[in-house]
Design a protein around this nucleic acid. Structure first.
Lengths: 131, 131
DNA sequence: ATAAATGTTCAAGTCAACTTGAAGTCAAGG
DNA sequence: CCTTGACTTCAAGTTGACTTGAACATTTAT
């Protein structure tokens, strides 16, 4: 039912129109229909953009997202193909999680340092996180 | 005691020599001493590089890392300055954690889809993760 | 002693993910 | 009618994080 112009979609997804054109250009969004040469989107694009943004913030490149969305949904590959791909990305996400946790505890420890003994405290904290 | 050439450090940190020169150029590493014009590092640089890499994998830019390392260690700022900075980054890390968890559960759900009902399953999964 | 390996600087190139600018189209409002 | 504003394409520019290449010096292995 509801259809949107490029700037309406951009506003709802918190992107610039140029980003949407770019996504289309690299095959991340399919070409929407045109009305007088102008792009006209239907609501489903917002869902796709939401997935794209979550994936992106989780550290996926647009290329990876494109492959996942285009490989999985049309299921062109023979089952195991995308299965392997997703497994690999899950493993990467877990590695990233570890790095983030490590960095978090490092920063949390640094926060506990008193201002006067800062240099020493930092040093100890650094050592601790290397071990 | 132990001193290393640029390529020895690079190898131990799993970086290229050019990356070390670049880090020096942007002020992320301080200039090491030179022997016959060649950089000679001592072991402490490995610790610093380890922190840099963890931070980087946790989503920090080199600029942010430089500020943290140069703002905190010499403690040039008046206490609260870096305190605020670190707090802000901790908040960002938590946000990123949420995105990663979200993406993980999305991918895990997709993995559970049967190959035959794939399209339907993806659709349902997508809906679920939007709500 | 000479050739290969490693080092140096400096400028320019690369890739991702967009943005910006130029030049043009088109419907709507004053 | 004609200007404003939102749209179009296409090419070129931007930022981050490096890498690569040229031109040259020094060090190490044969």
């Amino acid at each position: 039912m509801a259809e949107f112009t490029i700037s309406q979609v951009a506003r709802q997804a918190d992107l610039r129109p140029s980003a949407l054109r770019y996504y289309e250009e690299i095959g991340l969004l399919s070409m929407p229909k045109r009305v007088n040469g102008r792009r006209r989107y239907d609501a489903s694009v917002l869902q796709r953009l939401a997935v794209i943004q979550t994936a992106q913030r989780a550290g996926f490149t647009l290329d990876e997202i494109r492959i996942l969305l285009n490989e999985i949904l049309p299921s062109s590959a023979p089952q195991s193909q995308w299965h392997t791909l997703v497994q690999r990305k899950l493993a990467e996400l877990n590695t990233t999680l570890l790095h983030i946790e490590k960095m978090k505890s490092l920063l949390e420890d640094v926060m506990r340092c008193e201002d006067d003994a800062l240099a020493d405290c930092i040093f100890v904290t650094g050592q601790k996180h290397l071990a």
